[in-house]
C-alpha cells in the first residue's frame, strides 16, 4: 500500500490501492442497461454536491495540549476526511458510469481547505466552492448544515453525498441535519447506491447487518467505509485539477450565523490503560482469569 494512505483500509487481501479506479463501481447498473461505458440514463442529468472536510490525517497520532485547551494542530499533516473521499469517489463514479451531469465539491474551512478541494477535483469533481472562514474557526455541524442548505438552494443539486462523519469531531450529524433542513430524505451509512428512476436504492450498514431503503430524489446520502475504494488521482488529473474553477465565498454571503452553540470547556487525554502481565501458558491464563480476575 502506498505510504500516506489512511490506515483505515490497511488490510491484507485488499487489491492494490491504485487498482481502485479500475474496479467495478459499488453501485449496480439497473437491469437492461449492461452496456459498459454507456451512461445509465437513470442518473442522467443528475447534479451532485459533495461536501468535504480538511482534517488531521488518519495516520497522525494526535496530541492533546497539556493545558487542556484542545488538540495540537501545529505542523500536523492534514488530509481530506476519509469518508468524504469515499463520497467524492462515489459521485465521480455516478458521473462516469451512470451519466450524472456534474459533481461540485464544497468545503467549509480556512484558505488551506483549497488543497482539499483540489484533491476532490483531481479525483474527478468538475468544480469547487470554498466557504472560507478564518484559520482556527470552529464551524459546528449545525452551522455547516445551514451553510450547505443555503448552497443547495442556489446550486439545486439532485443529490448531496457526504461522509458519515468527520474523523476529528466524530459527530456524525451533518448529513442528517442537512436532509432535515431541506426536508429531503436521507440514506445514511451507505454501502451500496443504485440509481433508479427518480429515486435511489441504498443499502445501509445498520447494527444487525444491512438494510435497503429507497429514497426519493433529491436526497442526501452519507457514506460508510465499504461503499467504494477511492482512487489515487493520476498525475495528469492532478494537473488538470489546478485549472478547474474554484470559487471562494464567505458565510455572510449565505446569511448564516456560524457562532458555536457548544462551549468546549476542556479537552483531555483519555484514561490510559496499563499493560498487564504476560502469561506463559493457556493453563496459567485460565487460572488467572479465575483466581485473579474472578471472571470465569
Amino acid at each position: 500500500m502506498p505510504p500516506g494512505r489512511p490506515a483505515l483500509w490497511g488490510a491484507a487481501g485488499l487489491p492494490d490501492w491504485t487498482a481502485g479506479a479500475l474496479q467495478e463501481p459499488a453501485f449496480v447498473r439497473s437491469a437492461g442497461n449492461n452496456n459498459k461505458g454507456a451512461p445509465d440514463i437513470l442518473a442522467n442529468d443528475m447534479k451532485i454536491v459533495v461536501p468535504v472536510k480538511r482534517v488531521v490525517d488518519y495516520n497522525v497520532k494526535i496530541r492533546v495540549k497539556p493545558d487542556g485547551s484542545g488538540i495540537d494542530l501545529a505542523n500536523v499533516k492534514m488530509s481530506m476526511n476519509p469518508f468524504d473521499e469515499i463520497a467524492i469517489e462515489e459521485a465521480v463514479r455516478l458521473k462516469e458510469k451512470s451519466g450524472a451531469k456534474e459533481v461540485v465539491a464544497v468545503s467549509i474551512g480556512s484558505a488551506k481547505a483549497q488543497e482539499t478541494l483540489r484533491t476532490a477535483l483531481a479525483i474527478g469533481a468538475d468544480r469547487a466552492i470554498l466557504i472560507e472562514v478564518p484559520e482556527g474557526t470552529n464551524v459546528e455541524p449545525l452551522a455547516v448544515a445551514k451553510l450547505l442548505k443555503a448552497l443547495v438552494e442556489t446550486e439545486k443539486p439532485d443529490l448531496v453525498i457526504l461522509g458519515k462523519q468527520a474523523i476529528d469531531d466524530d459527530s456524525n450529524q451533518t448529513g442528517q441535519m442537512l436532509a432535515s433542513l431541506l426536508d429531503w430524505p436521507q440514506a445514511t451509512f451507505a454501502s451500496k447506491v443504485v440509481p433508479e428512476a427518480g429515486s435511489l436504492s441504498v443499502t445501509r450498514e445498520v447494527d444487525g447487518g444491512l438494510e435497503t431503503i429507497k429514497v426519493n430524489l433529491p436526497a442526501v446520502v452519507t457514506t460508510d467505509l465499504r461503499l467504494n475504494e477511492p482512487r489515487y488521482p493520476s498525475l495528469p488529473n492532478i494537473m488538470k485539477a489546478k485549472k478547474k474553477p474554484l470559487d471562494v465565498k464567505k458565510p455572510e454571503d449565505f446569511g448564516v450565523d456560524i457562532a458555536p452553540r457548544l462551549k468546549v470547556l476542556k479537552t483531555s487525554e483519555p484514561a490510559s490503560r496499563k499493560a498487564g502481565v504476560k502469561v506463559g501458558s493457556v493453563a496459567e491464563l485460565v487460572e488467572l482469569l479465575k483466581s485473579q480476575a474472578g471472571i470465569l
Binding site: V64, I167, D170, N172, R261, L262, K263, T267, S268, P270
Partner: peptide, 30 residues
Amino acid sequence: MQISDITKVVSPDTFERPIYAGNAIQTVQS
C-alpha cells in the same frame, strides 16, 4: 446543536464525549 456520543453527564448541560476516535475527551457545555 446535537451532543453526539456522550460518555458522561457532568451536569444537565455539560457532557464528556470522545473525539479523534477516542484519543481525546472533550467536555462541552450546551
